[in-house]
């Protein structure tokens, strides 16, 4: 096959389909008349096209009707079936909804509060102040206050008692001598001191033993106080008796001394 043949070979399919200019067709016809290989090639192309053109359509195996339920399709297909105006309106609405959703999501704030989730668009509401709770009994403070009040009351009672006692003693002291008065004074001071110590000790004990009931503590304090008062009362009575005895003895001694003196003087 010559270079000319190769050039004309490219003309053959175009010639078969009538796609050559008059000049090209004329040149090809001249070449085919002189070149048997190209002539055979041209004939084979012609046979091929005839075979293709002789193709027949086979009958359809069934009809391909489209039924309404088939045509429903996906939402996207429904969108495609809309007119342009409806498509534009739908797209606008969907875009607006999408934008609003994005905006809402971007402003969404979530906070966990008291075991529950609090959602808010924008700023979260202020935390609610804790709900007022029923006042809890502070038993230890109450006990301490009661103990303190009991101790205070006890102390004041004692002081009042001692003031009364002191006044009584002052009245009775006028009738007794200096030594007896000093003796009584010391006894009262001791009693006062002891009373204070007792009250302090009791208060300390009460504070240490906060687990005891108030009633019991109060009862003990009262008991202690009654016992102390009884002791003081006994002591005072004893002092008073002793003072009276000593006074009687002194008088007897004085009377004896007077009798002795009178006898000497006689």
């Amino acid at each position: 096959m010559t270079a000319t043949c190769r050039e004309y070979k490219s003309y053959i399919p175009r010639a078969i389909l009538g796609d050559l200019s008059q000049e090209e067709q004329k040149a090809l016809d001249q070449h085919l008349a002189e070149c048997s290989p190209c002539n055979r090639e041209h004939r084979m192309y012609g046979d091929t096209v005839r075979q293709l053109s002789a193709g027949q359509n086979v009958p359809v195996p069934r009809h391909f009707f489209v039924y309404p339920e088939e045509s429903l399709g996906t939402p996207w297909h429904a969108f495609l079936r809309m007119s342009r105006a409806w498509q534009a309106a739908t797209a606008t609405v969907l875009l607006a909804l999408g934008f609003a959703s994005l905006l809402a999501i971007s402003r969404l704030q979530i906070r966990s509060e008291d075991g529950a989730l609090v959602l808010a668009f924008g700023t979260l509401p202020e935390r609610k102040p804790p709900a007022p709770q029923a006042p809890q009994m502070d038993t230890s403070a109450l006990e301490a206050r009661i103990l303190k009040a009991a101790a205070e009351s006890s102390r004041q009672d004692n002081l009042e008692f001692l003031r009364t006692l002191r006044a009584e003693m002052a009245r009775s002291n006028k009738a007794i001598g200096r030594e007896q008065r000093a003796l009584l004074e010391r006894a009262i001071n001791n009693a006062e001191l002891r009373m204070g110590q007792l009250v302090s000790t009791t208060a300390a004990n009460l504070e240490r033993k906060t687990d005891r009931s108030v009633q019991e503590v109060y009862r003990k304090v009262s008991l202690e106080r009654a016992r102390d008062l009884a002791a003081v009362d006994n002591r005072i009575n004893l002092l008073a008796i002793n003072g009276e005895v000593k006074s009687t003895q002194t008088d007897a001694i004085l009377a004896t001394l007077l009798q002795v003196a009178e006898l000497r003087m006689q």
């Binding site: 399919p13 091929t48 096209v49």
Partner: peptide
Amino acid sequence: IKSRLYAGLEVMRYRLGAFASDI
């Protein structure tokens, strides 16, 4: 289109050329 047609036709000529006598 023409370019594809001629390229395809060339392949078909080689595939169907041997049966040209059937036509």
